[in-house]
Simulated assay, not measured.
Amino acid sequence: MVDFGFDKLMLIGAVALVVLGPERLPRVARTVGTLLGKAQRYVADVKAEVNRSIELEELQKMKGQFETAVTDVKSSVQAHVDSANQALQSTWADLSVDGSTSEGGMSGEGGYYGGPVPVYAHPKKNWRLKRGATPLWYKQRQGVRRHAQSGAARVARFRPPRRAS
């Protein structure tokens, strides 16, 4: 970078004043200032673009490292799950070979304690029947809606009556 001290700037200003004259020097100074500003903005934009590309490359490297870590963890978890599944299958096969499932293991006819395994039955609760069993006078007092009503009808129903003038 070119180093301009105060003495060099004074020398350049004096030469410009002599060469250009006092009439054209302010206009040239404004033009030079504008060009220097544009050059500084261009350099700043180039620096920002370079920084963004460097950050993008770093993020892509981090993404690659993260993806490899994820695949490593996934493969290790899958290996553990497979080994546990194989152990479970071998234990299940050993139980089946021993004949313990027919004596009340986990088959359909008996549970762990020898009794029958209960089958899930839906609790047949009919909420419409319960709501229908409520008397109409109680529903009216509690404000339970008995019929579907549009929003406009509901507003009209609860709008105060107009006073006759």
Rank of each mutant, 00 (worst) to 15 (best):
A93Y: 03
S107L: 11
D94K: 03
S102D: 14
H80R: 09
G108C: 10
S76A: 01
S76Q: 05
V97A: 15
E109S: 07
S75A: 12
N85I: 07
Q89F: 03
D94E: 04
Q86M: 04
Q86L: 10
L95K: 07
G104K: 08
D94F: 00
K74P: 02
E109N: 10
G111D: 15
T71V: 11
E103D: 09
V97E: 11
A79R: 02
G108Q: 12
L88A: 14
V73K: 09
A84V: 02
V81W: 05
D82K: 09
G111L: 13
S83A: 13
A93K: 06
N85G: 04
S102G: 15
W92D: 05
D72N: 07
L88T: 04
D72E: 10
S75C: 03
D98Y: 06
T71H: 12
A84W: 00
S76K: 05
T91I: 08
G99K: 04
A79E: 08
G105H: 05
S83G: 04
H80T: 02
V77A: 08
L88Q: 07
A69F: 03
A93G: 00
T91Q: 09
T71W: 09
E103Y: 11
S100K: 15
V73D: 05
V70D: 10
V77K: 10
A79M: 02
Q78A: 15
D72C: 01
E103I: 08
Q78I: 01
K74R: 14
S107M: 14
V77W: 08
M106K: 15
N85K: 13
M106S: 14
D82H: 02
V97K: 13
A69K: 06
S96Y: 09
S83V: 03
V77G: 05
Q86S: 09
S107R: 14
S83Q: 13
A93I: 03
G111E: 13
A93Q: 05
V97M: 02
V77M: 14
V70L: 14
Q89A: 04
S96K: 11
W92C: 00
G111R: 13
S90A: 14
S102L: 07
N85T: 06
S83L: 07
Q78L: 11
V81Q: 14
Q89T: 03
T101F: 14
S96P: 00
E103W: 10
Q86Y: 00
S75K: 06
T71L: 10
Q78N: 14
D72W: 00
S76T: 05
S102M: 07
S102E: 15
E109C: 03
A69T: 01
D94G: 02
S83D: 12
